[in-house]
Amino acid sequence: MSAGEMRTSGGNWGHRLSNALKTTVLLAGLTALLLWVGARLGGAQGLVIAGFFVVVMNFASYWFSDRIALAMHGARPVEYAEAPWLHAMVERIAARAGIPKPKVYVLPTRAPNAFATGRNPEHAAVAVTAGIVELLDRRELEGVLAHEIGHVKNRDTLIGTVAATIAGVISYAAQSLFWFGGSLLSRDDDENGLAHALGNLGVLLVAPIAATLLQLAVSRSREYGADATGAELCGDPDALADALMKLEHGAELMPYDRAPATSHLFIVNPLSGGAIMGLFSTHPPMAERVRRLREMRVHTGGRTWRNAWA
């Protein structure tokens, strides 16, 4: 093993360990928040029900996250004969990452984007839209696929799905305070009825925001990691940077709002939004992502990662 490969291996291991620790804390926070909402809604019984939902959601997310995400977007598998160059590209990047080749899917939309899903590298899939194949050249598309396979290599795909699922249930549970308010918002037989009403109103307002912020913390931190891994895998940070800039512009011109709950899975945010919505974006600022990628090229003296580390 060369010195460059040793540095790469050690860096990836450290990155995955750091991500695992952060994810554990964040998912624990989401779980605790869900249990708290359950307790506020139904006391001890609500706490038990919330705990049951946590177990069921985590089980379903682990085993079926890839199929659920792909079905929500009407993705279909791409046969090898249909696009042998695309399969070859995915296979080549996966080999560099040291993981099995993910399955390849296409989404029937002209909105340019891509995402990866699956519970682990052995059960992963990468999906590209019809629009991204039209918009990017093959050098840029390889950078995008390297980013998505970077998510698989870093084991980000499962975590993002679980976090989104729990956050969604928290928001739904909190909203039930509004739709089924009445007895939940106050207790006439309790001297502290007003305090309970105010407390439950706090759940209604705070819980969805807290769940969203926790979910964003999971998603945003992983995009930077996948960018770095993807740049390393394709050996050309500028290719990924160029692709991201094109995709951001393409998403602005052609937003894609099918299954908004899965927007964090895509390489760029498929939803349109102004400056205020940017605060709650599932993706870090594009300018910062591009800057970091350009810096990677500068640090290698303009050479590709593989050549620089050979």
Rank of each mutant, 00 (worst) to 15 (best):
V162A: 10
N113G: 13
P100Q: 11
A111F: 02
G160F: 09
V169P: 01
G131F: 09
A111D: 11
A167G: 15
E148G: 07
V104R: 01
V106C: 06
R155F: 05
H147G: 07
E122K: 11
G168F: 08
L158M: 14
V128A: 08
P112W: 12
A167Q: 05
G168S: 09
A163S: 15
I159Y: 11
K101L: 00
F115G: 08
L141F: 06
T161N: 11
R96P: 02
E122G: 12
A127Q: 07
G160I: 08
S171T: 15
P102K: 03
A116H: 03
I132Y: 09
G160W: 09
V169A: 14
T165L: 00
L141T: 01
E142Q: 14
R155W: 04
I149M: 12
Y105D: 09
R119K: 15
K153M: 08
A125C: 07
R119P: 14
E134Y: 03
G118Q: 08
I99V: 15
K153H: 12
V152H: 12
R138L: 01
G131K: 01
K153C: 08
N154L: 14
Y105Q: 02
P108D: 15
V152W: 04
A97W: 04
P121K: 05
P108K: 03
L145P: 02
N113M: 12
V133L: 11
V169S: 05
R155I: 03
A146R: 00
A116E: 03
I149S: 12
V144N: 10
F115C: 10
L158C: 10
N120C: 04
A124V: 07
L145T: 12
S171V: 02
E134T: 12
T165M: 01
L107W: 03
G118Y: 06
P121F: 11
T161C: 09
R96S: 13
I159W: 08
A116C: 08
V169G: 00
G168Q: 06
T109D: 12
P112T: 14
L141W: 03
T117A: 12
A114I: 09
A164T: 15
V126G: 04
A114E: 10
G150L: 00
G131I: 06
A164Y: 02
V104G: 00
I159S: 15
L141D: 06
L135D: 11
A116D: 01
